[in-house]
Simulated assay, not measured.
Amino acid sequence: MGKPLPPANEEARLAALRSFDILDSAPEQGFDDLVVIAAGICAVPMASVSLIDRDRQWFKARLGLDDAETIRDTSFCAHAILTPQAITVVNDATQDARFSDNPLVMDEPGIRFYAGAPLVSQEGFALGTLCVIDKQPRQLEHFQLQALEALSRQVTHLLEMRRVSRALSLQLREREWYEQQLQHYQHELEQQNADLAEQTRTDPLTGLPNRRAFSVALATAIDKAMASGDGFAVAVLDVDHFKTVNDVHGHDEGDRVLAALSDLLKAQFAGRGMAARYGGEEFVILMPGTSLEEARLLCEYVRESVGLLSMGLPISVSIGLTGFRRGDAPDDLFKRADAALYEAKRNGRDRVSCG
Results as ranks from 00 to 15, higher is better:
Phe113Val: 11
Leu119His: 01
Gln144Ser: 04
Glu123Trp: 06
Phe143Tyr: 08
Cys131Phe: 05
Leu127Ala: 14
His142Leu: 15
Ile111Glu: 10
Gly124Asn: 08
Gly124Ile: 03
Phe125Gly: 03
Leu119Ala: 05
Glu141Asp: 12
Ile111Trp: 06
Glu123Ser: 15
Leu119Glu: 01
Tyr114Val: 03
Arg112Ala: 11
Gln136Lys: 11
Tyr114Glu: 01
Gly116Ile: 04
Pro118Thr: 00
Ala126Thr: 04
Arg138His: 09
Ala126Gly: 14
Gln122Thr: 13
Glu123Lys: 10
Ala115Gly: 12
Gln136Glu: 09
Glu141Pro: 00
Ala126Tyr: 02
Phe125Lys: 06
Phe125Pro: 01
Glu123Pro: 03
Arg138Ala: 08
Leu127Ile: 14
Val120Asp: 01
Leu145Pro: 15
Lys135Asp: 12
Thr129Arg: 12
Leu127Gly: 12
Cys131Gly: 07
Ala115Gln: 10
Asp134Ala: 15
Pro118Val: 00
Gln144Ile: 00
Cys131Arg: 13
Glu123Asp: 14
Pro118Gln: 05
Leu119Ser: 05
Leu119Cys: 02
Ala115Glu: 05
Arg112Cys: 14
Ser121Met: 11
Leu119Asn: 00
Ile111Tyr: 08
Leu127Val: 12
Gly116Ala: 08
Gln139Val: 12
Leu140Phe: 03
Gly128Trp: 02
Glu123Tyr: 05
Lys135Glu: 12
Leu127Asp: 09
Arg112Gln: 09
Lys135Thr: 15
Phe113Arg: 09
Lys135Tyr: 10
Leu127Phe: 13
Ile133Gly: 00
Gln144Pro: 04
Ile111Thr: 08
Ile133Asp: 01
Gln144Glu: 08
Gly128Arg: 05
Leu127Pro: 15
Leu140Arg: 03
Gln122Leu: 04
Leu130Pro: 01
Gln144His: 07
Phe113Gly: 07
Gly116Leu: 05
Phe143Glu: 09
Phe113Thr: 09
Phe125Leu: 03
Leu127Met: 10
Gly124Ser: 13
Ile133Cys: 02
Ala115Cys: 08
Val120Ala: 02
Ser121Leu: 04
Gln136Pro: 05
Gln136Asn: 14
Ile133His: 02
Gly116Thr: 04
Arg112Asn: 13
Pro118Lys: 01
Gln136Gly: 10
Ala117Thr: 01
Gly128Ile: 02
Pro118His: 00
Ala126Cys: 10
Phe113Pro: 04
Ile133Thr: 03
Leu130Met: 06
Leu145Met: 07
Thr129Ser: 11
Ala115Asp: 09
Gly128Cys: 13
Glu123Met: 06
Phe113Ser: 13
Glu123Arg: 12
Arg138Tyr: 08
Ile111Lys: 12
Val132Asn: 15
Leu130Asp: 04
Gln139Phe: 06
Gln139Ile: 09
Ser121Ile: 09
Lys135Arg: 13
Leu130Ala: 08
Pro137Phe: 07
Gln136Val: 15
Gln122Lys: 09
Ala115Thr: 03
Val132Ile: 12
Thr129Trp: 09
Leu119Gly: 01
Gly124Asp: 08
Leu119Val: 00
Ala126Arg: 03
Gln122Gly: 10
Asp134Lys: 12
Ala115Lys: 06
Pro137Ile: 14
Gly116Asn: 03
Gly116Lys: 02
Cys131Glu: 06
Tyr114Thr: 05
Phe125Val: 03
